[in-house]
Computed example of a mutant assay.
Amino acid sequence: MARLTGYLSRRGGLHPKEATGLRKATSLLFDQQSRAEACRWMNAQGYRTTHGNEWAPEVLVRVLSNPRMAGLDDEGEPIEGFGETVLTPDEYRRLLALFAEQAEQQPPAREAFDYLLTEGLSECGLCEWNMVGTRVSSGGDPTYRCPPPRAGQASCGRVRINADRLEDSVGEEVLAELLRPGTQERLVHLLADLRAEAEQLRAHAEGAEQRFAELRKMRDVLVPSAYEAAEKATRQDMRDARSRLRYLEQLVDVPIADVWDLAAWWKSAPRKWQRALVGVLIVKVRVLASGRGRHRDPSARLRIDWR
């Protein structure tokens, strides 16, 4: 078990530098500074957790809420021979009272939104990066967005759409598709194709150990750089195959074999099965940029690639 920040071990022994940082952070909290501001100060000063990570608000609260910060046991009694402490018992109790007061002032957490078109079902129409579900703020409406670019990620971050506008529009298109004559038969064929692909991927994954064994036999024949490249490519191939297999396994068991009114089924189906049916019918939903107000109808921003 990792030692507690501020001490040399769980039995005590003050860590002077870490204790100084925690005491200053406590002072900032008592001065009505936010937890995030206290963490920013600690990180800017070079203070780190025992794992070497930067401080985050929830980590700071967890550490300062440990009774050993004041040399107390889990019952709140002084630990005999613990030695010098980061906080005094009075400071520790004041901190707990402050955290409790702040918790009461926090608005109740919003229920997590169950997005219909994540996991690669929707993509940015500008950069073709997968859209992600998010909220602009804790009180904001659920939205889909292209994530901002960062190192190793070529997303553009320029496309965003409210979840209800995107999902309602796609739902209307799916309903229209389900009402077409022959849709039931087409779904049967699509599911058969997806099940066949899943079986191929399953067999491919099960043969991974044999392929790696054959590759290891070539270690002495290939130059090191070629062997490393082949091993890397093989591992990436297995990751891709297993990821695709997990996705297909969510689709192929969608319970529509005995359903004759697909439109009625869609309207009452749990989100899990709606998402699965969308994955069977649709390869990708491409979301275009808003066009600075030109696309008042959200369906005008969508390009659906049907399977």
Rank of each mutant, 00 (worst) to 15 (best):
P148M: 06
V188F: 10
V170H: 09
N162D: 10
L178R: 09
P149D: 01
L191T: 05
A163L: 04
G182K: 03
R150A: 07
T143L: 11
E177K: 14
P147T: 09
G157N: 09
A154E: 06
V132D: 10
V170Y: 06
R165V: 02
P147V: 09
G140W: 10
G139S: 12
E173M: 12
T143R: 06
Q184D: 09
G157I: 07
S169R: 10
E185C: 04
S138D: 14
S155L: 03
R145F: 14
A163C: 08
I161E: 00
G171M: 10
L190G: 05
V159L: 05
Y144C: 08
E173S: 13
L179E: 13
P142W: 03
G157F: 02
P149C: 04
R135I: 00
A154S: 13
P147K: 07
E172G: 00
A176Y: 06
S155K: 08
V132N: 02
A176Q: 15
S138F: 11
Q153D: 14
G152I: 05
Q153T: 13
G171S: 14
T134Y: 14
Y144P: 01
A176T: 14
P148L: 10
V188E: 04
E185S: 00
M131W: 04
P147M: 05
L187I: 05
G171C: 07
L179Q: 12
T143F: 00
D141I: 15
G140E: 12
C127H: 09
V170N: 06
L191H: 03
E172C: 08
P147R: 11
E173G: 10
R145V: 14
H189W: 07
A151G: 03
E185K: 00
A192T: 08
